[in-house]
């Protein structure tokens, strides 16, 4: 964690880090709370109470089926974070070892194979790939995670390779190679801690992208299956209700903006805090 320690700028100069961190923390807390408590069960219907405005009983009103919107926003936060974390998990689990292997095998067979493989994945727009996978395997949370995760493997492999190569050019690492330390030890002891910052920044950005992808897929009916709450699905349901009850669209829309903005600010803040010189490595 050398780079993290060497972050010279203090937090006071990085408003985006704190604003982003606060916005993200609120989403995180909401999702955690939703894990064991929501005002109502997120799928509890009451048709006679449908499309109500905010009241003491329903702080944010009710949806088309008389479900409590606050409960569904909270449940949606949980869904979004699950998908985001799992998609990042898939991306890291695949991308980290592939990226390190590629860096250490520079221009070798493994490196070329990984580079061409990620070129192939990048050749298709990420959302299109996700739609394709979801269309073939049907809707559902696992399929959304796989769909978004596959793209993340390529993203992380490429970021890790680039960052690792720049570290490998440094004298301390050249020295480690020269004295004959085994490759696994170089990867784990020298490379990984030094690229952790870059990976963390990338992860927050991909996290935001994964949440948007889940919302988009659910909006298209290819994401989370009903009746599980999802912000994208809430937006889709609200589409024909704009005239009757605009809150149906505004609330989940705000939740998405809040979360994605928070994560992006956090990502920017983290990057500046860790090392301004790494800016060029950001491949969004």
């Amino acid at each position: 964690m050398r780079l993290l320690m060497s972050g010279s700028k203090s937090g006071g100069h990085l408003p985006q880090l704190w604003v982003g961190g606060a916005l993200t923390a609120i989403v995180l807390i909401t999702a955690l709370v939703a894990g064991f408590w929501t005002p109502y069960p997120a799928d509890q219907q009451s048709i006679i109470d449908r499309l109500q405005g905010p009241s003491m009983a329903h702080w944010l009103g009710t949806d088309l089926y008389g479900r409590d919107i606050l409960s569904r926003i909270m449940g949606g936060a949980q869904t979004a974070l699950w998908v985001g974390m799992a998609a990042i998990g898939v991306g890291l689990a695949g991308g980290l070892p592939l990226g390190l292997a590629a860096a250490m095998n520079r221009n070798g067979l493994i490196d070329t194979a990984i580079a061409r493989g990620s070129d192939l994945i990048f050749a298709f727009p990420a959302l299109l790939t996700a739609v394709l996978i979801a269309a073939i395997h049907g809707p559902g949370m696992i399929n959304v995670i796989v769909a978004v995760g596959i793209f993340n493997i390529a993203v992380f492999a490429r970021v890790v390779r680039g960052a690792a190569l720049s570290i490998m050019a440094r004298p301390f690492l050249q020295a480690a190679i020269a004295i004959g330390r085994p490759w696994p030890s170089i990867a784990l002891v020298h490379l990984l801690p030094n690229i952790a910052g870059v990976v963390a920044v990338q992860a927050t950005v991909q996290f935001a992208a994964a949440i948007l992808a889940e919302a988009a897929l659910s909006y298209l009916g290819l994401g989370i299956k009903p009746p599980d709450p999802s912000w994208g699905k809430m937006l889709a349901d609200a589409q024909t209700l704009l005239y009757l009850s605009p809150m149906q669209a505004i609330l989940p829309g705000l939740a998405i903006v809040w979360t994605v903005l928070g994560l992006n600010l956090l990502g920017d803040g983290l990057r500046d805090a860790l090392d301004p010189k790494l800016r060029s490595l950001r491949a969004v």
């Binding site: 985006q16 992208a209 948007l212 998405i256 920017d268």
Partner: peptide
């Protein structure tokens, strides 16, 4: 940095066709 992120985020949202 803040404004840049804001623009990018808004771009993303709008591009999502919502």
């Amino acid at each position: 940095g803040m404004a840049r992120t804001l623009y990018r985020t808004m771009g993303l949202i709008i591009a999502s066709g919502i």
